[in-house]
Design a protein around this nucleic acid. Structure first.
Lengths: 202, 202
DNA sequence: ACATTAATGGCACTGAGGGCCAAAAAGAAG
DNA sequence: CTTCTTTTTGGCCCTCAGTGCCATTAATGT
């Protein structure tokens, strides 16, 4: 009988690297040469691994800047589920989005760097759509649950889309203006939307 | 002195093809093999042109399904500018979006085919982001104009993002349910959003 | 005929991504 | 210590999108 080692490597060759190490090597290169000008070979070499191995850690070059996004999504889902059921759905969603985008000061500058890359590089703007979709689905599932609808129904989906729309507007603004916090901008975007839709007239 | 010929080909070799012909050839192949499985070489061959020539008509394979989108954008901008100034901005935007998505019955089935391709093919979902961005900018410019803001300010941008969010929700629904019209679904999405944001409570 | 102009398409190159598989590195069992 | 098993690694080679370069082709104008 064998004691299960906590590092989860009962047998076989040990991995020579991990996602974080590749990410660090990649970000350094992206910083100095830009995303497009950085080849996958260069990243692999900087990380001290073979190109083929890199593709086992990240399915594509475009996925590198997203890092640990799947885990963040799980956190978002848990955060939603933990919301009190007696507040309006829009309030629960808004609070969860705020929590999702809270970073302590230490992490903030890396976060800014990551988001700059993601939102200003055309190839990544495009690719990010596929990640955003998963994010929207988490929101849609929660909304569907609260209203007793299917996640694929119009309303839950729309709320997912609109929540993302608000977040992206806030982020674009955040990258341009040094002073404002993401929280502030998310609040302002939502308030702006409510005002826009409430404008009197036909 | 020379009379300008209306066909705008005063001199030089005549083009052997045009965007529409390439698009037709491409859609036929996409239909039978799927988008990913169709190579650019195959499209070029089906269109009877060289691969190199194809890339002069479309900057990428991903751009083929979008066809004449730039012209549609110009129409959207004109439609917005023609809106009466005494209706609320949200109303003007909504009407313009409805008009933008109006197709007569003859064109409807092609439109459905195109949108199915665009919204269900991962590579195109990703690439479409770049086109959507231009669409959002048209909306943002109009909203900025009405409110006396810059197009890069939070509110105009947010309205662009949210308008797109509503349109995409409606389209996803439209592709799944045969019965409903795009107009209906756009109305319903907007009404749903207003109800969602108006839900009483904190 | 000859010059000019514009479009074509072949050739060769880069870079992303993936299939295949032998070699390397670790623990387990004898 | 050797052998077996398991897992990761990374080299090799292929496909396909996209681009730069440039000679060829087809049209018009003199």
């Amino acid at each position: 009988m064998t004691v299960t080692t906590r590092s989860r490597h009962p047998q076989g060759r040990k991995p020579v690297t991990d996602h974080a190490a590749i990410e660090r090597a990649a970000f350094t290169l992206f910083e100095e040469r830009g995303f497009e000008a950085t080849t996958v070979d260069a990243i692999a070499e900087a990380a001290g691994i073979g190109r083929r191995t890199l593709f086992r850690y990240y399915p594509s070059k475009n996925d590198i800047p997203w890092g640990q996004f799947d885990e963040s999504l799980a956190t978002l889902a848990r955060s939603l589920d933990a919301m009190p059921r007696d507040i309006p759905v829009r309030e629960a969603v808004h609070r969860a989005v705020l929590a999702f985008n809270r970073f302590d000061d230490a992490a903030l500058s890396q976060h800014r760097q990551r988001m700059t890359l993601l939102l200003r590089t055309p190839a990544l703007q495009a690719h990010s759509t596929l990640r955003y979709r998963q994010w929207r689905e988490v929101i849609a599932r929660y909304v569907a649950g609260r209203y007793g609808l299917a996640p694929a129904d119009l309303l839950p989906r729309m709320v997912g889309q609109v929540s993302l729309a608000l977040a992206l507007s806030a982020y674009e603004q955040w990258l341009e203006q040094e002073g404002r916090s993401i929280e502030e901008l998310l609040d302002e975007a939502l308030a702006g939307l409510r005002a826009y839709l409430a404008e009197p007239g036909r």
